[in-house]
Design a protein around this nucleic acid. Structure first.
Length: 833
DNA sequence: AACAAAAAAAAA
C-alpha cells in the first residue's frame, strides 16, 4: 500500500507499525470535523477548513521528513510543517480549482494550518507562485520533498474528494485574516487530540482512505469526549434558590442586544457580583452568545476560591460541563484534583473534568468552563507559542473578568483592551466585574465593544452600545453604613490603639504596605504584650496556606473565637480571603486599595450586626502624615518606612487629601467621587514638591503602555505576519522585577527533605517562597553545587535551576549570613533584627 | 536609597 511509504509518526514500540502520514492527517480531519460542528460556519467553508486542518502535516510526505524519522537525519532548512506550507503553495492551482477562494485568502489559511506547532511558518516564498516556474525558496523546499511531491498532490485531491462541498468562495480577505488566528489554534487542538496514540493507534492496514476515515471518525468521537472537549449544551432553569439581590435582579432583567456583547457590572464588594455574572453568562449562553465560560481572576488564590464557589453553579447552567482550573499552581488545588480524579472513575456527577485538560494550562482554556488567572487569557494576545490555541479556546466562551480594578496598571490595561477586541472579533461576549473602576478605564474598556457612557451613577450595570441600569431597589439586608476615616500619625500610636481595642475584645487588623514594616509592627505588638498573627506573601506556600486557614477559623465568615484577635498583614489581605474585622488600621495607600481594604471591615452584617460588635461604628484608622503639610517629596517617609516606596506618591497624596477632607468612605454612591478625585481628569492639583514624582510616574506609565503596544500582537495583520511563537518569558503578562524563588528544605539523617510536610513534588512546590531578587542575590546563599542540593535539583529543567535556589533552613531558622526563615514571620533579612 | 503582589516556563 503506497501510503505506508510515508510515515507520519515513528513507531511507538520497537519494530511496531509506523502510522502513515496520510492516516494521521485523516485522524486529525476527523477530530476537526467533531470540533468544528458546534460553530456556525456555512457547510462549504466548514468543509474547506476541515480539509485544510487535515492536510496540516502534508510536509511529512517528504523525503527529508522520512529520513529524519527512519535514519535520524536532521531536516535541514525546512521542518515538516514548513514544507506543508510550501506544498500548499505548489498545489495552489489544484486547490483553487477544487475550493475556489482568492489567492491571498488561501495563503492566509495555508499558513494557519501549517503553523500548528505553535508558531507561524516564516519562510519567504514570495506568495503563491503565479506561474509554472517556482521561485527559489519553493524550489529548495521541493528538493527536500523529493519523491513525496506527487503523492502529496494526490492526497490533496483525495481530501477534496472526501469533502466535495468544500469551498472558500465568499470569504472576504478581512474575515480570513481574523479567522487565521482562530483557525491556527483550531488546527493545533485537532492535532493534539489526533496525535495521541492512546486514541489513534498506529496501524498500517491496506485500507482505502475513505474506509480509514470511517474508522477514524468513530475513534475521534470517543477521543474528543474523553479529552473533555466535546462541548456541552446550556440548560434552562433557574440557577439560584435565594431571593436575588438588587444587582443580580438587574442582571436577570436587562435587555441583551444581538451579537457580541460587553457588560460591565460595577458594585461594592459583597453585593453578590459573582452570582450576578453567572446569571448574565447563563442568559448569554441561552441567547447563543457562547457555549461555556472562562472566569478570569487577578491571582491564583482568588482563582482557587472562585473554583470552589462557582463549580457547583455551573453544573446547573450546562449539561455535565467539563470544568478546569487554569493557573501555574492548579495542580496543588485539592478540589480540582478531586474533580479530575472523580471524572476518571466515571461516576455520575454534575460537573466533570479530564486528565487531558488538566495536563496543561494551554489546554485548560478548551474546557466548557475554565476558572483561572487573567494571565491565562492575556497570553492569547501576546506573540507566544500556542497563543492561538488560547484564542480558539476562548472564542466560544463568555469571558468573565473579575476584579477589573486590579488591572488598571497601564501594561495590563492595554492587554485587557486588546483581549476584549480580539474576543469580540471572534464573535465572543464578555462580562467585566469591578468595585471601583476609574471612568477613564471604563471608557477605554467600553470602547472595545463600541460603547460609551459618561454616566457616573454607582452602582451601575452598563452594556456597551446597549441598555444600562443605574436605579436599584434598596438593599434589604443589613448594611454597615459609612466607614469613618481617622488619621494616626505615628506607628507607636497605632500600636497603642490596637492594644486598647484588643482589650475591648475587638477583632483587629493592621494592613501595611511593605512586608518588612508588617514584620516590624508584628514584633512591636508582641513586645507590647499583644499576641498578633502575621500574614504576607513572603511565606513558604505551605506556611501561608496554614496561616490563612487559621486566620479564617478565627475571623472568617463563620469564624469562632474572634474576640481580641489581631492580624498584621500586607496587600494579600485586600482580596481573596473572606475576613471580617471590627477594627481596621491601614497604612495610607491609593484610594482603590483602601476601599478594597475597608471591605474587610464589618463585612458580614447579617451574621454580626452592629449591636454585636465591640465598637460603636466601623472606623478605618489610617496611618498617614498630614496631607496639608507637605515639606518635600519624601513626605511619606517619616511616617511609613519601607511602605513609603510602594505606591506612586501623587496617588497616595490625593487619596489622603480627599479621604481626610471627607472624613468617611460613604456607601455606596460616594465611592465614585472618591475614585475620580484621585484618578479623574480633574483631580486635585498636588503640592508643587510632589510634581516631579508625578511626572516620573507619568513617564513610567507611558513607557509601560508603549511596551504593551509593542508586545501585543497586531491582529489586523493576520497570523502569518503578526504571530511569532516566542517563549512565554520574553513576553510577560505583567511587568516588574522578577522575584527570586527560594525552595526551603530541612536537613535529616537521610539528606535534605522539603520544608513542607509530605513527599514528592507537591511538598517541594509548597516549600517555595519568593522575595526580592536583588536583595536575595546580594547574600551568600548556599552553594547550589553542593552534593546534598544536587540530589534535589538533578532532574530539574534548566529554567527551573536558573530561577530557584534550594535553601536548607537550620534549626534556629538561619539560611545564611543575613537571611533567616521563621514559620510565623516568613523570610527575614538580617537588617531587621 | 532600594519597594506589594502577581504570572509563566514540553509537545503532538
Amino acid at each position: 500500500m503506497q501510503w505506508t511509504d510515508w510515515p507520519g509518526k515513528s513507531a511507538v514500540v520497537l519494530n511496531g507499525p509506523e502510522h502513515p502520514a496520510a492516516f494521521h492527517m485523516l485522524d486529525v480531519a476527523a477530530v476537526a470535523e467533531k470540533l468544528i460542528a458546534p460553530f456556525a460556519f456555512a457547510a462549504p467553508l466548514r468543509d474547506a477548513l476541515i480539509v485544510l486542518a487535515g492536510l496540516h502535516d502534508l510536509g511529512k510526505i517528504s523525503e527529508s521528513f522520512r529520513a529524519m524519522l527512519r535514519d535520524d537525519i536532521p531536516q535541514i532548512g525546512f521542518r515538516h510543517w514548513e514544507l506543508s506550507e510550501a506544498l500548499f503553495y505548489v498545489a495552489d492551482a489544484r486547490i483553487a480549482a477544487r475550493m475556489g477562494g482568492r489567492p491571498r485568502i488561501r495563503q492566509i489559511l495555508y499558513a494557519a494550518a501549517a503553523g500548528h506547532h505553535g508558531r507561524p511558518p516564516d519562510h519567504n516564498f514570495g506568495g503563491v507562485p503565479p506561474e509554472a516556474r517556482l521561485p527559489r525558496g519553493l524550489r529548495s523546499a521541493m528538493e527536500m520533498v523529493g519523491d513525496g511531491r506527487e503523492p502529496a498532490m494526490r492526497l490533496i485531491d483525495a481530501f477534496c474528494d472526501l469533502w466535495p462541498k468544500a469551498s472558500l468562495d465568499g470569504l472576504t480577505l478581512a474575515d480570513a485574516t481574523t479567522l487565521s488566528w482562530w483557525f491556527a489554534g483550531f488546527c493545533t487542538a485537532a492535532d493534539w487530540v489526533g496525535s495521541n496514540p492512546c486514541w489513534f493507534e498506529p496501524k498500517t492496514p491496506a485500507w482505502t482512505l475513505d474506509f480509514y476515515l470511517e474508522q477514524a471518525r468513530s475513534v475521534a468521537a470517543s477521543a474528543v469526549a474523553e479529552a473533555g472537549i466535546a462541548g456541552t449544551v446550556v440548560q434552562n432553569g433557574s440557577l439560584f434558590d435565594f431571593t436575588l439581590r438588587p444587582m443580580q435582579a438587574a442582571c436577570a432583567d436587562i435587555v441583551l442586544p444581538d451579537g457580541p456583547t460587553l457588560v460591565i457590572v460595577e458594585d461594592e464588594t459583597g453585593a453578590g457580583k459573582t452570582e450576578a455574572a453567572l446569571l448574565l453568562a447563563h442568559r448569554m449562553c441561552l441567547a447563543g452568545k457562547g457555549r461555556g465560560l472562562f472566569f478570569a481572576l487577578p491571582t491564583m488564590a482568588t482563582a482557587d476560591a472562585m473554583f470552589s464557589r462557582a463549580s457547583g453553579i455551573v453544573g446547573r447552567m450546562f449539561d455535565n460541563p467539563c470544568v478546569t482550573l487554569a493557573h501555574g499552581r492548579a495542580g496543588l488545588s485539592v478540589p480540582f484534583r478531586d474533580l479530575v480524579q472523580g471524572s476518571r472513575t466515571g461516576g455520575p456527577r454534575e460537573i466533570t473534568s479530564s486528565d487531558w485538560l488538566a495536563q496543561s494550562n494551554r489546554r485548560a482554556l478548551l474546557a466548557d468552563v475554565g476558572i483561572g488567572t487573567i494571565d491565562q487569557a492575556l497570553l492569547s494576545v501576546l506573540p507566544v507559542r500556542f497563543q492561538t490555541l488560547r484564542t480558539y479556546g476562548l472564542s466560544s466562551k463568555i469571558l468573565v473578568v473579575d476584579e477589573v480594578h486590579e488591572m488598571g496598571e497601564p501594561y495590563i490595561a492595554e492587554e485587557l483592551a486588546a483581549l476584549l477586541k480580539m474576543h469580540r472579533a471572534a464573535g465572543g461576549s464578555a462580562i467585566l466585574l469591578t468595585a471601583t473602576l476609574p471612568m477613564a478605564l471604563r471608557r477605554k474598556l467600553l470602547a472595545t465593544y463600541n460603547g460609551e457612557s459618561d454616566n457616573t451613577a454607582y452602582p451601575a450595570l452598563t452594556i456597551a452600545g446597549g441598555a444600562s441600569i443605574t436605579q436599584f431597589p434598596l438593599e434589604i439586608r443589613p448594611v454597615k453604613g459609612p466607614v469613618t476615616v481617622e488619621r494616626l500619625d505615628t506607628a507607636d500610636k497605632a500600636v497603642s490603639l490596637l492594644t486598647e481595642m484588643v482589650a475591648q475584645g475587638a477583632a483587629c487588623v493592621w494592613i501595611r504596605n511593605a512586608v518588612d514594616d508588617a514584620i516590624e509592627a508584628f514584633e512591636a505588638l508582641r513586645a507590647a504584650g499583644v499576641e498578633a498573627r502575621l500574614l504576607h506573601a513572603r511565606f513558604a506556600l505551605c506556611d501561608r496556606k496554614r496561616i490563612e486557614a487559621e486566620v479564617l477559623q478565627r475571623v472568617g465568615k463563620d469564624g469562632k473565637d474572634r474576640k481580641g484577635f489581631v492580624l498584621v498583614g500586607t496587600q494579600v489581605l485586600e482580596s481573596s480571603l473572606d475576613l471580617d474585622f471590627d477594627v481596621m488600621l491601614s497604612d495610607i495607600a491609593p484610594i482603590a486599595a483602601l476601599i478594597q481594604r475597608a471591605g474587610r471591615l464589618w463585612r458580614h452584617m447579617d451574621i454580626r450586626p452592629a449591636e454585636s460588635r465591640p465598637v460603636q461604628k466601623p472606623t478605618l484608622h489610617i496611618l498617614s502624615p498630614d496631607p496639608t503639610r507637605v515639606g518635600d517629596d519624601r513626605w511619606l517617609h517619616g511616617t511609613l518606612g519601607k511602605g513609603a516606596w510602594v505606591y506612586a506618591v501623587a496617588d497616595v497624596w490625593r487619596s489622603a487629601h480627599v479621604l481626610f477632607k471627607q472624613g468617611q468612605i460613604g456607601t455606596p454612591d460616594g465611592q465614585r467621587a472618591l475614585i475620580e478625585a484621585v484618578y479623574g481628569d480633574d483631580a486635585e492639583p498636588i503640592p508643587e514638591v510632589l510634581l516631579k514624582a508625578e511626572q516620573e510616574k507619568y513617564g513610567k506609565d507611558s513607557a509601560n503602555r508603549g511596551l504593551a503596544w509593542h508586545n501585543i500582537v497586531n491582529f489586523p495583520d493576520g497570523y502569518r505576519k503578526a504571530g511569532r511563537g516566542d517563549d512565554d518569558v520574553n513576553y510577560p503578562t505583567r511587568l516588574g522585577e522578577e522575584p527570586r524563588v527560594l525552595c526551603l528544605a530541612r536537613r535529616t539523617a537521610q539528606g535534605l527533605v522539603a520544608w513542607a510536610e509530605g513527599d514528592g513534588t507537591d511538598a517541594w512546590m509548597l516549600s517555595e517562597v519568593s522575595a526580592h531578587r536583588k536583595k536575595i542575590d546580594a547574600l551568600p546563599l548556599p552553594d547550589q553545587s553542593l552534593p546534598e542540593i544536587m540530589t534535589i535539583t538533578k532532574d530539574w529543567p534548566e529554567w527551573k535551576c536558573t530561577q530557584i535556589r534550594v535553601c536548607p533552613v537550620e534549626e534556629d531558622g538561619r539560611i545564611c549570613e543575613g537571611l533567616r526563615y521563621d514559620a510565623e514571620c516568613g523570610v527575614m533579612f538580617a537588617s531587621l533584627s
